[in-house]
Design a protein around this nucleic acid. Sequence first.
DNA 1: GCAAAAGTGTTGAGATTACACCCATGC
DNA 2: GCATGGGTGTAATCTCAACACTTTTGC
Lengths: 211, 211
Amino acid sequence: MAVDVVVLTIENREILALLVKVKTGPAAGRWAFPGGLVALQESLEAAARRELAEKAGVADIFLEQLFTFGDIDRNPIHRVVSAAYFALVPHERTHLRTGAKYAGIGWFPVKRLPRLAYDHNRVAETSLQRLRSKLSYTNIAWSLLPESFTIAELQEVYEVILDRPLDRRNFRKKVLDLGLIKPIASKRRGPHRPAQLYVFRSREPIISEIL
Amino acid sequence: MAVDVVVLTIENREILALLVKVKTGPAAGRWAFPGGLVALQESLEAAARRELAEKAGVADIFLEQLFTFGDIDRNPIHRVVSAAYFALVPHERTHLRTGAKYAGIGWFPVKRLPRLAYDHNRVAETSLQRLRSKLSYTNIAWSLLPESFTIAELQEVYEVILDRPLDRRNFRKKVLDLGLIKPIASKRRGPHRPAQLYVFRSREPIISEIL
DNA sequence: GCAAAAGTGTTGAGATTACACCCATGC
DNA sequence: GCATGGGTGTAATCTCAACACTTTTGC
């Protein structure tokens, strides 16, 4: 029994996935999602969090079970059943570390992934679907943003994930009406009119029609 | 590694779950969802289908992965990670068989389940949530109905699962406009005006706003 | 003063809800 | 003929989508 962790983030208007380079075994040399065997005295979720802390240097982020992959031939040597977990992080909070176990680590655009080890391309597909579908009825997007952010930045998260432009005025109206964010006393400055910064009223997961 | 199967059906305006009575081990005497260890040369889904055929006597029905429960203390003797599967059957197609493994088998209203073995009350909760949420954006309700049915019977499925009454005229309009069902040449007779029978145009799972 | 992004309301179309009467059959 | 569920349309409300100009800053 193993866990794999799909860590996604957004940077530069692209969804990125965290991959590690496999060092040993039949998949050596290929990129894969970080993961490993579950210890006997460890819950599945704890194993996923451990993996996340070791490789991405992040704790206390959005993490949920994605799907359990249990086909008999997914690993050519041993029978491995693997629970995939799905995590979202604000890009600037991550600190990648290879550790001794892998030959490399890095961020890859999910739209242009290489051929991955095992059945991990399928895992990637599943996680993208999950991200898209949860976006519209939960506040999951919050997990990809820093503590404070502008409405334009929030809208960008939605546009990148849904892969289509959204109307600026309608978006602003919608998210303000939902009452999930509140303005703070500072502004984002740049070579243009400063933008109001907001924070989330609550970091709890919420289910409600968003878009 | 084990699988558990939550089989739900509707009968008499109630959602029923299929439970078996555990014969041996620390949970002996308690009711639980049917399940068992996954064979080495068997995928998770195949194991779930095998369980379903053995206990409920049904094959070729709606079945999907629900959640994998992997807490360390869910079974007091051995560490068992269990992938729960979720199945829906038309009540009249089932033929219950205990088999040698269990001390009993039966249908129980999900709203009034006894205290189940292991963490199965939690499994039951999760499956009910899944049923409710999928109802509104997929054609999952079809899986609970026989080959042909009246619109009133379809509406009853929705009302029982959502636990609220729906407007008869609006429901009829909605499902006919969706174009997923078509009338056939016969009617359901009774001590009142006969009702038009319908069949599904396709039994494939469909994702679209339903209600 | 100009470039660049922020901020702001209204209107029309389509969808959703609420609601009441007649119809066809079995007994 | 009466009890039972089947079948049908419309109006009012709400939601969603489309759309353009003014404001504030940095340079």
